[in-house]
Each structure stands twice: as C-alpha cells, then as structure tokens.
Design a protein around this nucleic acid. Sequence first.
DNA 1: TTAGGGTTAG
Length: 403
Amino acid sequence: MAAFRSSIRHYRFFSTTTTKSTSPLTISAVKAKLRSEHDPDKALEIYNSVSDSNASPLANRYAQDLTVKRLAKSRRYADVEKLIDSHKKDPKITQESYFSTLIRSYGLAGMSDHAFRLFNQMDELGTPRSSISFNALLTAYNVSKKFDQVPKLFDEISEKFGISPDKISYGILIKSYCELSLPESVFSILKEMDKKKIEITAITYTTILDSLYKKGKVEEAEKIWEQMIEKGCTPDATAYNVRIMHAHLGKPEDVLALIDEMTKAGLKPDTITYNYLFTCYCKNGMMEDAKKVYQDLQENGCFPNAATFRLNIFYLCKNGEFEKAYEVFKESVKKDKVPAFGTMKILVEGLVKNSKTKEAKSVFKIVRKKFPDNVLNAWKKLGDDLGLSKDEETPTKEAAASA
DNA sequence: TTAGGGTTAG
C-alpha cells in the first residue's frame, strides 16, 4: 500500500494547479478536454487529473499519448522523459504490457533512442521480455518515422534476447518496408511468414493494400486483395475503407458498390467510409447527394468526426454556400472539432465577401479561442485584413451572447 | 495497455 501511495505521489510530480475531479473522467471527456488544449502545461494538468481519478486504463493511455505529443511538439523532451520516468515507480511496471506502452510513448515523442534505452532497462526493473515489448520497441521506431531502423532491429533484438517474432512483429516490419517504398521486400517477407507458418492477418494485408494504392499500383493492390480472400482471411471495415479510399477518386457508383459489398458481408460502414462517399459526391458536382450523406450520418449509426466537419465546410464554401457552411461550423464548435486555419480562412473570407459580416465576426471570435498560439497571429492578421477586429472593445449584445 | 485505414489539403 505504501508503494502504491508513493506511486501516486510520483504521478503528481508535475502538479501545480491540478484540476481536482470528484468523479472519474470518461474517455470522451478526456478526449474533448485534451483535443482542444494545445498548451503543454494545461495538457499536463488534465493528464494529472486523469491519474488522480479512477479513469479507465484506456483513458489513461490516451491522455498519456496526447500529453506526450503536446510536450514533444513544444520540444520539451526533458519533460517527456520526466513524465515517462515517473511511471517506473508504478507497481504495474513489472507487467510487460504496461511497460510496453511507455516504450511506445517515447516513439510518439520522436524519442526512439530513449525507447531503446528503456527496452534495455527491463531486466533491472524486473519486467519480463517477450514479443510484446519487442513489438512496442519496433512500433516506437515506426511512429517516430525511423523506418530504416526497423528491419535491422527486428533481426538484432530478436537474436540477442531470443525473442521469436510473431504475427504482429511481422506486421510492424512490413509497415516499415511499405514506408520505405520497398514492396519487393514485402513479398519476400510474406513468403517467409508462410514458410514459418506465421499468420498473415487482415491488418497486415491492409498495410500492404494501403501502400500499393498510394503508390498507384492498383493492379498489385487488387491481387493482394484476392490473395487475402483466397487464403481465407476475412476483410474488415478498415480493409474495405482502404479500397474505398482508392475508389473515391473516381465515380460515386464505385464507392456505393463497395459499400454495398461490405454491408452484404455483414460489415458496418463507419464515419471514414461516409467521409469518402461525401467527398466523392462533391468532386463529381453532386452536392445534394453529398448533403444527404451528412444528414443521414447519425441515422446510419455514425458520428461526424473532425474530417467530416472540415470536408463539409470546405466543399460548401467551394460551392458558394457560405451560410450552410456557417451552420456546419457551429456544429463543429459544439463538438469541439473546429477545422484548422486553412479551412476557417476560406469560410471567413467567403462570409465577408457575401456581406455576412455578423457571421464572419462570430466565427472570428469563436475560433480565436480555439486555435493554438502558433496560429493565432496568422488568424489575428486575417481578422485585421478583413476588418473583423473592429468593434472589439464594445461587443454587441448578440456577439456577447454567442461567445 | 504490443500491428492497419481519415487528419493540416482539398
């Protein structure tokens, strides 16, 4: 119990004005809070408040990942190290899966060398090593974009520690080769897996499929799909979405045919699927069909994500429907998923051009509170250029009410 | 609590 208490104290090493929470934060509450918080110190506060509460491990991990990313973006690598180091005192450190999340976190911060060092400290911290931490180490290199190091480590580490790479290890290895644009290596690895009787999963196939489509190798991608089916590997919604990603560059009929196919296979199209369908309609000048996709989204059991709002606002603006885009923008505010600068610039400029000054000012004010510091100057300059910063000192009743 | 698909462009 004493050890446990000291671990809690360690969790709080950053505590300054930590938010006290009386009830556990839900995952969605944590996500919403952290998503809109770009200040690394405030992200840390939220992170600490999660550790205080009895939030689920998943919420904890999400919070840790986002906090680490925010700190890394501000180049506060010493703070990342401090945060991850503090977890070494946690009794759970002897659980390999827990240890592995810390290794992976270093990768998210772009600190693969630290991930490597941490992996080597497992013995002294009393944590057993298996393919789980091995895979976490390889993942740390992939997420920090050090793809060329993965094949080397795959061989060296598995040999040094006597770890047998599993289906996930091979999936990570294949990901690195895909990113390195070495498809021929991928095919030889697939042969090696066959020989070693290591399962090639839908996830592994999806990695390859995505890579081939993105390189424009459509025929090879289709062959991989056929091979997956022949081998009795069942594609899931993500696998279909990769095909739809390619199909959406063409005609809506092709996207609809794939949605029909996946539905018949018992799979549910998700928000990403519908975002592609929406975009495809827009690109083909079928705005009314596109709008219907957005309207029917919830009916289809899906919720708009950040990309849904961004795509909607962008294409409505492109179509000159700035008032409708403004309505969608207000929804994005409610959901705390306001699009980035580029999209918001198009909206504000369009509103001003169409004499919707009141709406433009409202967008300007709301967005100013949402943007991180590094884009605020550009946003303020745009507001000055468009004359939206005027009357700042004496806001109208309406503006005050909507703020 | 060890792998894959969207996203800051369009």
